[in-house]
Design a protein around this nucleic acid. Structure first.
Lengths: 217, 217
DNA sequence: ACCTGAACACCGTTCAAGT
DNA sequence: ACCTGAACACCGTTCAAGT
């Protein structure tokens, strides 16, 4: 709002980090869809075009934002490869839940350095397991799909999103609907909290056990 | 282009089906992101605002488009429950590959009737397996995540997309990169076609076998 | 019922100009 | 190097009006 504008002493007012942090906060509050270069600039107390000195275009900003989310994932792990893979998966899952707008972007957007480092780390952990190459590949994608898929699902069935309050009323409609009894039953199952609490970890262990088991044959 | 405009005889020029089919073709050609109400109207030889007599807003159009993709999935199945689940999964996977722009929308957008019918059918198939409720739920999400995740992955590693030719050059850069050796190795593995061809079916069977096996204990 | 153009309130981004 | 306003080429959608 009524912030000091322009330069202050000789130092730049803007900085990439400042831009990204502010954009992240705005995305967390209203979703990426609602984030615009113009709103972001206003929030920063700068002219729109100033942003373009730090970021090539809007896509690059979103990429930076997603990578900022990736940066929250702790890459240090302890224990054997299954423990390590589990830690990476859980940490990624939690980072995505902290920034739900990032879930659909996660595998759509070109990865930044943090995202690459995370992928590298997970692949490295799987490599350390000395699995047959095809099993390792399959395991990587199974883990990856599970991380994203579950985050999406958890947000969908979980707390109302700032982004989509319309959706919540539609979900209510579903429950009193009669055309799709199994769907209604399924939604009710999740709403009652039968699932959510640690289905993520449960399925994760199934995948990891499956991989470890494949290694013994 | 130079099409006949306005009414012809007494009949409406536009029709929801015509709008959706045209929009679908445009989305297939250029991606949903490039699709605009204005371009669509021009393509149809109509004024922009005419569209709003058939569709509430742009979101509703995209929902209709995604449901049009869902409508391509054949719901009739044969054989036991694993065979039936397999058929639904494969048919969905194929429909998504036919319309890659729909993959990120698939679980983001509110489902239309065809999508609901498909979900209902898959849940029904799983219900017929008489699995314990938690296993059925877990199986549903595993299948669902696998369908989407694999379609996404296959498009990412597969043929160049009309949408994102910039990405293809970035992938090339990755291969000659040295910072992320495991990532480069992984991408090369996929590019060499070691995976893609039927990893989808392979992992699908792992999931189904796992569910069937869980049922025996 | 069906179709429409003008107008409004937004976008991202190019350009030319300022310090 | 850093910042900027004006301008351009787009958006989706409201409104009031036409048939």
């Amino acid at each position: 709002m009524g912030r000091p504008k322009k330069e202050r002493d000789g130092k730049p007012v803007l900085a990439l980090e400042h831009i990204v942090e502010t954009a992240l906060r705005m995305a967390d509050e209203q979703g990426v869809a609602q984030l615009s270069m113009r709103k972001l600039a206003t929030e920063l107390g700068a002219g729109v075009m100033s942003l373009y000195h730090y970021v090539a275009d809007k896509d690059a900003l979103v990429e930076a934002l997603v990578d900022r989310v990736a940066s929250e994932v702790n890459l240090e792990t302890t224990g054997n490869w299954t423990a390590a893979a589990r830690q990476l998966a859980v940490a990624t899952h939690e980072a995505l839940l902290r920034h739900p707008w990032a879930i659909p972007e996660w595998s759509t957007v070109w990865p930044g350095p943090y995202r690459f480092a995370l992928t590298e780390q997970l692949l490295e952990v799987l490599a350390s397991a000395k699995l047959p190459p095809d099993v390792a590949d399959l395991g990587f994608h199974a883990l990856t799909n599970h991380i994203q898929g579950f985050a999406r699902q958890r947000v969908a069935y979980g707390d109302p999103q700032p982004d989509k309050e319309e959706m919540n009323s539609r979900v209510q409609g579903l429950l009193t609907q009669v055309d799709y009894p199994r769907v209604a039953e399924h939604v009710r199952y999740h709403m009652d909290g039968h699932a959510n609490h640690d289905e993520f970890g449960y399925v994760l262990d199934l995948i990891l056990d499956g991989l470890a088991h494949a290694n013994e044959n």
